[in-house]
Nucleic acid binder design. Structure first.
Length: 739
DNA sequence: TACAGTCGGGG
DNA sequence: GTGTACGACTGTA
C-alpha cells in the first residue's frame, strides 16, 4: 500500500493496464500510476437487433460485461438499452467502428467520449486537480479522492517544470539556423546545421530538466517533425515522451468550416507523460495565454494538450457531457448530418437574432455604455432553457413578452446546470478584478480565466442552435434570442422613462446619455431599475468622454452598427469595426491609427480638438515621409488574409489569389483556413507573397497604394471631428496626385 | 456598375 | 473533436 498526494497532470488509456494517470507528487516526484477503469456504452433499437448485438459482443476476444437496463435519452425519454462494459478503455474506439458497420440500424450512446470526461464524471477529476491516491500491492490505484474544486478561485497550483523551445526565425518565411531552448535555469542555443551534436545536447537537456510542459513555437508543424526525423536518421533516441511505454500521438492537419469561415488547424503532436503546447497552434493563445489554457482544462475536464487545440465549442460540449454522464443521461453520438436546405420562412426565422439598432451617427459626449453581463447564458439559467425543457409549458410568445418562464422551474435543465457554476465563478472573478491592482500577481491570472470563460459562455449559446451539437435544439436557441430581444427593449423603455436618450442598441448593450449625468453614481439608479425590471444583471461598461458612431462609407447618411470609437473617462480607447480591429490591416496602418487616437484622448471634450491638430498633422507628415522614403520595415506593410478556398476555386484575381499562385509555383501550397501574407507591389502582379524564397527589391513596394490605405484609416477617425483634408493630405495637394 | 472575396461580433 | 448569419467594405473589370 502506498499513498500519494499531488496534482493530476494527464490521463489516458494504457492498453492492458486500464488507464495511466500522471501525478506531480508533493515530494517532487512525477509518478505514473495505473487504474482499472471499465467503460460502458449503450445501444438502443429493436429487440431482435439488440439480441444480435449481444451475441456478437459475447464472441469478442476481450472481457466484456453485458446487461439490459433502462436509461434516459434527453430527447425521447426513458428507453431500454443494452449496456456493455469493457475492461480496457483502449479497445472501445476500434470496436465501435466495427459496430456501426455491422449494426447501422442501432442507436449508440456513450461511445465516442473522451476518457478524461468519463473519469471526470466518476471521480470528479480534472487536469491539475489535487488528488489523494492510494495504491495496492500491485501498484494499482484503489482509492482516488479529489481534494480541491474546479470552482475554487485560487487553487493551489502545481510547481510545473517548463521549458520553451523556439526557432530563431519564422520557419515558414526563412530557414531557421538555430533553436533556443529555455528552462528556469538555462538558455541554450542549438545549431541545427550541426545536427548530430545538437540532438545529443537536446536529449541531455530534456533528461536534466525533465519538464512537465514543453512550450514551443511551431512545435506541431515544424520543430518536432524535424527533430524526430533527424533523430530517426541518426538512430538516436530523443526522450520527448516521459512515458516509455507510450507512443507520441500525431493528428493530421485539417480544414473545416466553423464560425462562418474556413478554419485551418495544423498537424498536432501530443506527448505522453508530459505536455506539449505549441503556442502557434493554440486556440486563443493571444486572448488568454497558457494560464487560460490551464483554466480551460480545469473547468472542461479535457486534457491540457487537447483543450489547447480545440475550439471553445468543444470545451462547452465536454462540460455538458460530464453533466449528462453524472446524471446517467445518455450521450448521443456526435452528429454529422448534412443540413437540409432551408425554406425562406425558416431563413427569416433564424435571422431573428439579437436586436441591432442603427446608432445616431456622429460625435457624442458623456455617453454611458451599459451591457447585460453574459446575457444569453444568464437567460438560459434564469429561465431554465435547455433542449429538454422547452416547449413543455404555455405559449412561448406571450410568456416571453411578460418575461415569464416558458419552462418548468424544476428540475434544472442540463444546459443551465452546466452553465450556472461557470457564470457564478466568472462573476466572482470579475468582482475581484475590480478591487485588484493591475500589479497584483493574481491580476493576470484572473484576467486570463475570465477571458477563457467568456468564450465558453458565448459558444454555449451558439451550440444550442447548432444542428450537429449533441445537446442542441433550435427551439431552445430561439427562446433565448426572444428573451434577449424583449429584455433589451425593456431596458430601453426604462432608460427612456427615466429621461435618458438611447443612442444605440446592440444585442446586449446600450449607449445612453442624459444632460448632467457624468459619473457612475448618476447612472446607478437606472442600472438598478433595469436589473429589477428584467431580473438580469446589467453593468456599466464605462462612461465615454466622447464616442463617435461612424456612417456608412458608401452613403454618409446611413448609419452602420458597430463602427465606432471613443475614449472612456479613464483614458481607455475602445474601437469597433475600424482598421485597428481588422486583422487584414498592415501593422503600419494600425499603429498610425492608434497613435492618432491616443493624441485624441487628450481632447477634453469631443469638439475641442483644435489645439491637437498641429500634433496630429505632424504625425501624419512623419508617417507619410517614412512611407515615401521606404523607411517603414517591410514586415509592417504585410497584409494578412485568410485563405477561403482551394486555388482553382478562385474566380477573380484578387491580391491574395495572385500571392497564392506565386507560392504554389515554389511548392508552398496553402490550404483553406491558412493565412496568406503579401505586400502590395508595383507592376502587373500588384501583390507579392511574403514567403517566397528569393529576395526582392523593396523599391517595388506600391507606396501609393499604402498611402491610400493610410489616408483612409486616418480619415475614418478624423471625419467625425470635421477635420479638413489638408491635415491628412498635406498643404501641397499635389502629393495626392503622385499616386 | 456588378461581382467576388474578406471581414467583424461576442467580452 | 466542428456555429454553414449577414451586411459592410474593398478590389477587379
Amino acid at each position: 500500500m502506498n499513498e500519494f498526494t499531488g496534482w493530476l497532470l494527464d490521463l489516458y488509456p494504457s492498453p492492458g493496464h486500464g488507464i495511466a494517470l500522471w501525478l506531480i507528487c508533493e515530494d517532487g516526484q512525477r509518478r505514473c500510476l495505473y487504474q482499472d477503469f471499465p467503460v460502458t456504452f449503450y445501444a438502443a433499437g429493436r429487440s431482435h437487433r439488440l439480441r444480435a448485438l449481444w451475441a456478437f459482443l459475447r464472441k469478442q476476444p476481450f472481457h466484456i460485461t453485458l446487461a439490459r437496463t433502462e436509461r434516459r435519452d434527453l430527447f425521447s425519454g426513458s428507453t431500454i438499452v443494452l449496456a456493455a462494459s469493457l475492461d480496457q478503455p483502449s479497445t472501445l474506439p476500434s470496436l465501435f467502428q466495427t459496430l456501426t458497420r455491422i449494426f447501422p440500424d442501432l442507436t449508440f450512446y456513450d461511445t465516442d467520449l473522451h476518457i478524461a470526461l468519463r473519469h471526470a464524471a466518476v471521480y470528479g477529476t480534472f487536469p491539475l486537480a489535487r488528488c489523494h491516491i492510494v495504491t495496492d500491492r500491485q501498484d494499482k490505484i484503489c482509492e482516488l479522492d479529489v481534494l480541491d474544486s474546479k470552482w475554487d478561485i485560487d487553487p493551489k497550483s502545481p510547481p510545473l517544470r517548463v521549458i520553451t523551445i523556439e526557432p530563431d526565425t519564422d520557419p515558414f518565411h526563412n530557414n531557421p539556423q538555430k533553436i533556443l531552448v529555455r528552462s528556469q535555469k538555462s538558455c541554450v542555443s542549438l545549431d541545427l546545421n550541426e545536427d548530430s551534436a545538437s540532438l545529443g545536447l537536446l536529449s541531455y537537456l530534456l533528461k536534466c530538466a525533465d519538464p512537465d510542459l514543453i512550450i514551443t513555437s511551431h512545435g506541431d508543424t515544424w520543430l518536432f517533425p524535424l527533430i524526430l526525423k533527424l533523430a530517426k536518421a541518426q538512430k538516436r533516441s530523443l526522450p520527448l515522451n516521459r512515458d516509455p511505454n507510450a507512443k507520441i500521438t500525431y493528428r493530421k492537419a485539417r480544414s473545416y468550416f466553423a464560425y462562418n469561415q474556413v478554419i485551418y488547424r495544423g498537424q498536432q503532436i501530443h506527448l505522453a507523460g508530459r505536455l506539449h503546447l505549441d503556442i502557434r497552434n493554440t486556440v486563443m493563445y493571444h486572448d488568454y495565454g497558457i494560464d487560460g489554457v490551464l483554466e480551460m482544462a480545469r473547468v472542461t475536464s479535457l486534457p491540457i494538450q487537447t483543450v489547447a487545440r480545440v475550439s471553445p465549442g468543444t470545451g462547452i460540449s465536454a462540460m455538458q457531457i460530464v453533466t449528462a454522464l453524472k446524471q446517467e443521461i445518455l450521450v448521443p453520438l456526435r452528429k454529422e448530418q448534412v443540413e437540409r436546405p432551408k425554406t425562406t420562412s425558416e431563413l427569416f426565422h433564424d435571422d431573428m437574432g439579437g436586436i441591432v439598432y442603427d446608432p445616431i451617427v456622429g460625435l457624442h459626449e458623456d455617453v454611458a455604455e451599459v451591457d447585460f453581463a453574459s446575457m444569453y447564458p444568464s437567460i438560459m439559467v434564469q429561465f431554465n432553457i435547455s433542449p429538454e425543457t422547452v416547449n413543455v409549458g404555455k405559449k412561448t410568445s406571450d410568456s416571453v413578452m411578460n418575461l415569464e418562464r416558458i419552462t418548468a422551474q424544476e428540475p434544472q435543465g442540463l444546459i443551465p446546470q452546466t452553465l450556472a457554476p461557470l457564470l457564478t465563478k466568472r462573476l466572482k472573478l470579475k468582482t475581484k478584478l475590480i478591487s485588484l491592482s493591475k500589479w497584483d500577481c493574481r491580476y493576470k491570472n484572473y484576467k486570463a480565466n475570465t477571458a477563457a470563460y467568456k468564450w465558453l459562455l458565448v459558444t454555449c449559446f451558439g451550440y444550442l442552435g447548432y444542428k450537429n451539437a449533441r445537446f442542441g435544439r433550435i427551439e431552445a436557441h430561439e427562446a433565448v434570442t426572444a428573451y434577449g430581444r424583449e429584455i433589451l427593449l425593456r431596458a430601453k423603455d426604462v432608460a427612456e422613462d427615466m429621461g435618458f436618450r438611447v443612442l444605440h442598441l446592440y444585442v446586449d448593450g446600450m449607449w445612453i446619455k442624459k444632460a448632467g449625468c457624468r459619473t457612475k453614481q448618476d447612472f446607478q439608479p437606472l442600472l438598478d431599475k433595469i436589473t429589477t425590471t428584467t431580473k438580469l444583471f446589467i453593468m456599466l461598461d464605462g462612461i465615454y468622454k466622447w464616442v463617435a458612431f461612424l456612417p456608412s462609407r458608401q452613403n454618409k447618411k446611413i448609419a452602420v452598427p458597430n463602427r465606432y470609437f471613443g475614449v472612456f473617462q479613464n483614458g481607455d480607447i475602445k474601437t469597433r469595426g475600424i482598421e485597428t480591429r481588422r486583422h487584414d490591416t498592415p501593422i503600419f496602418i494600425k499603429e498610425t491609427q492608434i497613435k492618432i487616437l491616443e493624441i485624441l484622448t487628450a481632447a477634453p471634450g469631443g469638439m475641442q480638438i483644435a489645439s491637437l491638430l498641429p500634433e496630429i498633422e505632424t504625425v501624419v507628415r512623419e508617417k507619410e515621409t517614412e512611407l515615401r522614403l521606404g523607411k517603414i520595415p517591410l514586415e509592417k506593410l504585410i497584409i494578412h488574409q485568410t485563405v477561403s478556398r482551394q486555388l482553382d476555386e478562385y474566380r477573380s484575381p484578387s491580391p491574395a489569389f495572385v500571392a497564392l499562385k506565386q507560392l504554389k509555383k515554389v511548392g508552398k501550397s496553402l490550404r483553406p483556413g491558412q493565412s496568406i501574407r503579401f505586400l502590395y507591389i508595383l507592376g502587373k502582379q500588384r501583390s507579392r507573397a511574403w514567403d517566397l524564397p528569393y529576395t526582392f527589391d523593396p523599391r517595388t513596394v506600391d507606396i501609393a497604394r499604402y498611402w491610400l490605405l493610410l489616408t483612409r484609416a486616418i480619415s475614418a477617425i478624423l471625419d467625425p471631428f470635421e477635420v479638413t483634408d489638408e491635415i491628412i493630405l498635406g498643404k501641397n495637394k499635389q502629393l495626392k496626385l503622385d499616386l
